[in-house]
Design a protein around this nucleic acid. Structure first.
Lengths: 341, 341
DNA sequence: GTGAAAGCGCTAACAC
DNA sequence: GTGTTAGCGCTTTCAC
């Protein structure tokens, strides 16, 4: 019985380092390291001895030391927007959770970095001071500073979003196609005058959605597109003017905008879809549970996050990766856009 | 002009380590370290020279190396629930953001750990393998495994929630008082028969809310409290039976439940507050924007997160901390509970 | 005021 | 198959 493993009061003690184990087992640090990692030549029997010792004594390796030795942090940074309205969007939260889960199964932890507007200070800190092995960006701006920065660093990163530049690893649902198809189907179903309640044009995804909408509309009067409808006040202001043009259907760019539009219509005693049709380019539980249920474009958000993480992890493993992954979408035509019922 | 700072092609190069700087400036590593940290004796002039050199050459310290040397990771782990319904609750997202911001200003980064139910595997990993300096728990169970685990480790942690055990650092809004007061005010305003749509009784916060409600009600028939109303199906099932008892007001334990209850009432063509009053023990933007606006208990969620992080940071600095911090609440009586209008 | 050297806990040549 | 040794990049005694 070795005393290294007993405290002065006789209680068993956890070995703190591989050296403790080595001493106890009369082996060298190297052998312990090999037993743990499975790399390098080591006798099967020795290996078993070490492993069972580790199990019995609940040794846990110090990851910081390992990080320093192998120049790898086993952390990936996830950049999340923090603009006020973002907290109401379940998208980022859902995305974050699936990224985290996938990261964990691949041996990484997720370090958060909030990016307000285009302020990427903390992201730079994480990268420059080597706190992470890779980055996932969850929102893309038109001229994205984070992307421009990461480019210059050599740090692997993948964006959740669509960029024309296919040298940057990206995964996204095809917003352009999805929005074009949803819009086309609304047109087909007899919706002639459509209005688009759009978000911040500086966000790439909103531009993509707009392009899809515009493509389906053909020669649409641009007046029917209202940008920057990101808060209740803007929407209240815009809706009055908009209603004078008697649109048959209002398409909202995301579920938050849609919620606010529905609330406005409700206050004005306007009924959906009897008085006006409503659809959204992004679905959430609230929209489906609404009365009437809202027609919307569905995407598999958890899959989006998981895929981004898988691509990043593959890139970190030196595997060849597909630079652009397009995920599917699903169009859910629901009562809110059935004008003739 | 020293060649250490030029690549073969003559481009300037960033010094990678303090040794690079030391060599260039003909000083020792120690001196560079002291100039950066400000600790230890060092000449003011030398200090300036090093600092301006660092600025000019954009040297960034390797934090992993520092971590190993000082046995501090500058990371704090935040445990977030991942149960399906949680993604719809902005609470955790808002909380997380304010924790992250505060952490960053104090020199820490946030490492995420998802906790599904009471599965704390990854949390244990973070703690045992020394990837974090402290932990914040954002939800408390009645018999919380995370708390039980952390206790035994000596790792500093603070919970967002209320525990009777004041040896654990905790910050929370006073749910008991808030819910009692809101309930009392509803009773005062003439609401006689009340029903409580409650969440998972295993979550400490729900128990606290229940206690407050019950205290205000005095000898309330327990039949009017419906637990585990966490999904639309349960609510649909429960509401039919509940309505037969003709409650005058339905109090919901959180905004997700409230949303589902409102949706049910709407589908059944029941009007709020004409046919029935509604109130919620937790406020969110959606509830205030609802038509009619929903009476609710408001708490300052960002402040909650920020406080938790501040307490943890103080504890890590060895400062004496207040074991229990109670944040205020605000009662917003809105139209949804004005029965006589 | 400055520097040499040991050490944080691990990995990875390289020797035996 | 196992051990020796030299790092990873920083901090921190302890001399000078």
């Amino acid at each position: 019985v070795n005393n290294r493993l007993r405290n002065k009061d006789g209680r068993p003690r956890q070995p703190q380092t591989i050296l403790d184990i080595a001493d106890d087992l009369h082996l060298s640090k190297t052998t312990i390291s090999r037993a743990i990692s499975g790399k390098g030549r080591i006798g099967a029997e020795t290996r078993e001895r070490v492993l069972s010792y580790i199990k019995d004594n609940e040794y846990k390796p110090n990851l910081i030391a390992k990080s320093l030795a192998v120049s790898k942090t086993f952390n990936i940074g996830v950049s999340l927007p923090t603009d006020a309205e973002m907290n109401e969007i379940p998208f980022f939260q859902t995305c974050l959770h699936s990224i985290t889960e996938t990261a964990n199964t691949r041996g990484y932890d997720v370090v958060l970095t909030a990016t307000t507007g285009q302020n990427i200070e903390r992201l730079q800190y994480l990268v420059q001071n080597k706190k992470v092995d890779g980055i996932i960006i969850t929102r893309l701006h038109s001229e994205d500073k984070a992307v421009a920065f990461l480019r210059g660093t050599g740090m692997p990163f993948v964006v959740i979003g669509t960029s024309a530049d296919t040298t940057i690893a990206q995964v996204d649902s095809d917003h352009y196609l999805g929005c074009r198809e949803l819009t086309a189907r609304l047109l087909d179903s007899g919706c002639r005058h459509m209005a688009l309640m759009a978000g911040d044009p500086d966000h790439k995804v909103n531009k993509d959605r707009y392009e899809g909408f515009a493509a389906a509309c053909g020669g649409l009067a641009t007046g029917a597109v209202l940008w920057k409808m990101t808060d209740a006040a803007s929407i209240d202001r815009a809706m009055l003017g908009l209603m004078r043009e008697r649109p048959e259907c209002i398409v909202c760019m995301d579920d938050v905008i849609c919620g606010m539009v529905l609330s406005w219509l409700h206050r004005k005693q306007l009924r959906v879809p009897t008085d006006i049709g409503v659809a959204s380019f992004h679905d959430s539980a609230a929209l489906a549970a609404h009365d009437p249920p809202i027609t919307a474009l569905r995407i598999d958000v958890p899959e989006l996050g998981a895929t981004a993480m898988r691509v990043l992890s593959d890139a970190l493993d030196g595997k060849a990766i597909q630079p652009r992954t397009r995920l599917g979408y699903e169009i859910a035509i629901r009562d809110s856009s059935r004008l003739n019922i």
